[in-house]
Simulated assay, not measured.
Amino acid sequence: MDQSLSSYKTFYTVASTGNISKAAKELYISQPAISKSIRKLEDSLGVVLFNRSSRGVTLTEEGQLLYQHVRSAFDTLSDAEDQLKLAGTLGIGQLRIGVSTTLCKYVLLPYLQQFILLYPHIKISITCQSTNQTLRLLEENRIDVGLIGKPDNIKPLHFYPIGEIEDIFVATASYMDNLKLRSGNSGPNILEAATFMLLDKENMTRQYIDDYLLENKIQVHNLLEVTTLDLLIEFAKIGLGIACVIREFVHPELEAKKLIQIPLGIPIHKREIGFAYMKNRHCSQSMEHFIHYYQSPDSSCFSISE
């Protein structure tokens, strides 16, 4: 575009009013300034845009053609301004969240339930991936915020902890009884005959548990890899093996004795979970609303049942 937007605004106003004097009042500039702007635009385009007379100005054929396009452009800009004002008034926006399937079900959903009541016009999209994949999506700006386990490197992130989780091993009482019969003892070596059920290697929890098993010299001979915590819990409940799960998410099963915790001598350290977003990214209004919401004491949706 060879001319500035102000030149077309001047042309548009003169064409709409049909009078340079009226256009000058509307634009708060002098009549000579308007005449100069119009002449400059005509010289640049190589056409005459207005027929001048003592009663005002009228558009030439070329002026009519330009006016149709300029009017359409300014109508579009006006619509955009109206949409922005409406978005500001109603809080319309978009929020992209990344989270693992487990944390989505047990932690994120209660947060969203209350957040949606406060901001019903924010469109929310959720990408369920592992914590490692969520971190990659944050780096690539494909999501705005992630609900993750605290990573080792948080320098590029704003990380706001909302609670702790504890990994434990569980099984049914009948599975452990049968395991003792098969192995012929109840000592520590009994676990070598067990089927261990863990999340797949893409999951940060699995990497954390692998380090724990290696550090404590716990041998795993029979391994079943599962993609979600819900499946681990269900497989453990039918007596398929010993599953590594998160204590806070199997509290009802432990209370009802559908599952029992397997003592391993050395407990697994608790891990922090929280919301994270990149430090070097601009936060949209929707994101600012969400940050303010989850940092508010009233939004403490994640709690550990005892």
Rank of each mutant, 00 (worst) to 15 (best):
T205I: 11
T76P: 00
E62L: 14
S186W: 00
A171L: 00
L198F: 04
S125E: 07
V170R: 01
S296T: 09
S78C: 02
T172A: 03
L223F: 03
I92R: 12
D210N: 10
I143K: 04
L264S: 11
L49M: 04
E288P: 00
N132V: 13
I291C: 10
F235W: 05
F159T: 08
Q114S: 14
I162Q: 09
D298R: 12
Q94F: 09
E192Q: 14
T195G: 07
G91P: 03
L231Q: 12
V48Q: 15
L65M: 15
L41W: 08
A24T: 11
L135F: 01
R39S: 15
M204P: 06
Y111P: 04
N19M: 03
A24W: 03
S37T: 15
Y119S: 12
L224N: 06
I143M: 01
I246W: 12
G149R: 04
I209D: 03
A73K: 07
E164W: 03
C104Q: 15
I273V: 11
A256S: 04
N153T: 07
K9H: 12
M176H: 04
P297N: 00
I38N: 04
L27C: 07
S30Y: 08
H289E: 14
Y12R: 06
R136G: 06
E62S: 14
L224I: 11
T134G: 15
Y160V: 12
K279A: 02
I238S: 00
L135Q: 09
E140W: 15
S7P: 06
I38C: 05
N203H: 11
E81S: 01
D82A: 15
S54Y: 14
T131R: 02
I266F: 05
N185I: 05
P267V: 10
K40R: 14
L199P: 02
F290P: 06
D82C: 10
V47L: 03
T58Q: 14
V99I: 05
K40T: 11
F235T: 13
K237L: 01
